[in-house]
């Protein structure tokens, strides 16, 4: 059987704190292919960033991956030694962080960042060659090569995020994880950065995992969407299916609560309540306290993810007649 480019199987991540264990990612599975975009949406605390970080083994202390597999081209990543994992990061899987203001080294010139990244993984490359490829990469993301001699504070927020993207693709990775890449940026810059990521994805055939809280962005930009809530995957489907035929009450609620500038006299509907505290999670379904369709079973029995056909997965008791995965 052909391997998926990246496959995650029932991944569990826990933060063990003094107050108790927080199950930040609970039994999440998905796979992604070449040149595909997967959008992961969720509110703060839904576990989307922890999920992203666990793919490259960077879950911060006291977090721990307690169960599950991450397979890159069929190769298990979670069993790798530190050095081996380090070689994977950057060359195979790359991470773009949310805040471009703090992810560059303020005392290093832009060019030096590239030299460091390239020469760490490919020590045989000379400094000048590394700078040469930096020029090309900066050109790809739309920054003039003179800017290589600037320090990060001399660049605007959008340009810094472009530099981060250029650094991420420097070693031609097959998977790029972009964690809220545009949250700190203005709309016009956001549009340019997202266009750039799309263009690079097509040009280099990378798989792109786009993590964001903004459902509009993932609907517009991704092939598949994964909706996360309180550490669980609630719904997974192609973006058109999520838009035209959302199944989970949470997804439906989200779609009704985001303003759309193309609609006239839109009526927004709020989802009542607020996300649960992960230390005292509700029993049964995580969403029932906010769900208008909740019935007895939702309060008592945990829900498993069901395949409702055509690759549309949903975690909800309302869908009984689905086949278990």
């Amino acid at each position: 059987m052909e391997h998926s480019l990246l496959r995650v199987d029932s991944l569990n991540v826990e933060y063990r704190t003094r107050k108790g264990s927080i199950h930040a990612v609970e039994d999440v599975s998905f796979s992604i292919e070449k040149a595909e975009t997967l959008g992961i949406v969720g509110e703060s605390g839904s576990g989307k960033s922890t999920l992203g970080l666990s793919l490259i083994g960077l879950v911060p202390y006291p977090g721990k991956i307690t169960k599950g597999n991450v397979l890159l081209n069929g190769k298990e990543l979670l069993k790798l030694k530190k050095e081996e994992l380090r070689n994977i990061r950057g060359t195979k899987i790359c991470y773009i962080f949310q805040d471009p203001m703090t992810s560059l080294n303020p005392v290093k010139k832009i060019g030096a960042h590239f030299v460091e990244v390239i020469r760490t993984h490919e020590p045989q490359v000379s400094k000048n060659d590394a700078l040469e490829s930096a020029k090309k990469l900066l050109h790809d993301v739309g920054i003039r090569s003179e800017r290589m001699n600037d320090y990060p504070h001399q660049l605007s927020g959008g340009m810094r995020q472009r530099v981060m993207i250029a650094l991420a693709i420097a070693l031609n990775p097959s998977v790029v994880v972009a964690d809220e890449p545009t949250t700190a940026l203005d709309v016009i810059v956001q549009q340019k950065i997202l266009d750039l990521l799309n263009k690079l994805r097509d040009a280099y055939g990378m798989a792109l995992i786009l993590i964001t809280h903004d459902l509009s962005i993932v609907l517009q930009r991704s092939d598949h969407i994964m909706v996360m809530y309180a550490g669980q995957l609630l719904e997974y489907a192609a973006s058109e299916d999520i838009y035209l035929n959302p199944k989970h009450p949470y997804t439906k609620g989200l779609l009704k609560s985001i303003p759309n500038i193309e609609l006239v006299d839109q009526k927004l509907e709020a989802i009542g309540g607020s996300p649960p505290d992960l230390l005292n999670k509700p029993t049964g379904c995580r969403f029932w306290p906010r769900c208008q369709f909740a019935f007895d079973r939702c309060r008592e029995e945990a829900v498993s993810l069901c395949n409702t056909g055509k690759g549309h997965f949903v975690r909800c008791h309302l869908f009984k007649e689905c086949t278990k995965e």
Partner: peptide, 17 residues
Amino acid sequence: ALLSAIPVPIPERQRKK
């Protein structure tokens, strides 16, 4: 330009940029 940059929650929507 501002208006055209706002993401619209509709898949595959090509907007005039």
